[in-house]
Design a protein around this nucleic acid. Sequence first.
DNA 1: CGATACTGGACTAAGATAGTCCCATATAGA
DNA 2: TCTATATGGGACTATCTTAGTCCAGTATCG
Lengths: 168, 168
Amino acid sequence: MLRISKLTDYGTMILVHLAVRARGAKDGVVDPEHLCSASDVAAGTRLALPTVQKLLKLLARSELVRSVRGAEGGYALARNPATITAAEILDVFEGPLSITECSTADSRCELEDGCPTGGAWQKINRGIRGALDEISLADLAHPPREFPLVDLSGRASRLRHRLPPGQG
Amino acid sequence: MLRISKLTDYGTMILVHLAVRARGAKDGVVDPEHLCSASDVAAGTRLALPTVQKLLKLLARSELVRSVRGAEGGYALARNPATITAAEILDVFEGPLSITECSTADSRCELEDGCPTGGAWQKINRGIRGALDEISLADLAHPPREFPLVDLSGRASRLRHRLPPGQG
DNA sequence: CGATACTGGACTAAGATAGTCCCATATAGA
DNA sequence: TCTATATGGGACTATCTTAGTCCAGTATCG
């Protein structure tokens, strides 16, 4: 239920990669200014290069990632990973949509007035956003053993990432 | 972000209709055994009949709705609306999926071991489920002014329901 | 028996998604 | 200045999903 697209998942992996690089995963030296090329990200995440390029372009247009063009250019996080929330990340890739289809600005809903479920979906939406606001990119990049969120259910599925076609 | 499909939205409207009928919206007499035909639901929700039929069939296979065949047959909620949660409803229509694509049972994920985001997505998923567990069908059918959920964000979009083609 | 109504599944058009590719532009360094 | 390296913007396509319809079968009431 409540799927996100593969591209959103990939995009998150890319952000995690940038966050890890920024804190100097390789040599222990922290350098938030460190630029990663698309090729570097593709190699690090094992995602296909064209897909990574596409997603990085999208991210660069958002406020989460900055880019430097030309030789020796690349991408880096625009802000501290601790200040970037999962809600913001999903906004970049999925757009600021609500969970109900009819919530886009230019759609007309003739059931609007009498609709008995409208208000409740809105509350559900806010509840979900609240949960997403609690998770930062820093958490994603370096998850602590005990997470700040309450474990509300044992029903969550195992999570795995599928490799793009042509790998594995 | 985090869309549900139109059919899920429609399905929820159908469940709300059944809940309202069960508590006797018309004459004030409460009758949880009251059966609604697909035609009655279609008329009440203003959704197209074939779509309603399809969704009611799906619901009847779940544990949320029971059906009676033959003349004078129809559909009714299998349980008290207060005990049916939004999480259960979404499970019926969207399946027990996680928010990440790769979480289905038969997919293989070569990034599984080293995947730095897996655990966090899982926590996000649980947080969302927690929010959905707080909303009952009874809430959806008869939303109180003040909702049990905390209002965590002012960013939620207006919610409207779009009519199916051929209406309006 | 016949009308009513659910059951199961097939089918299609339209739209979304994932993935690739091309050309333009910017920059560093030889 | 020239060239290699990168990003920027967008077009394009195959595939999958979604939404919606329809039909033949089965159960039940009167």
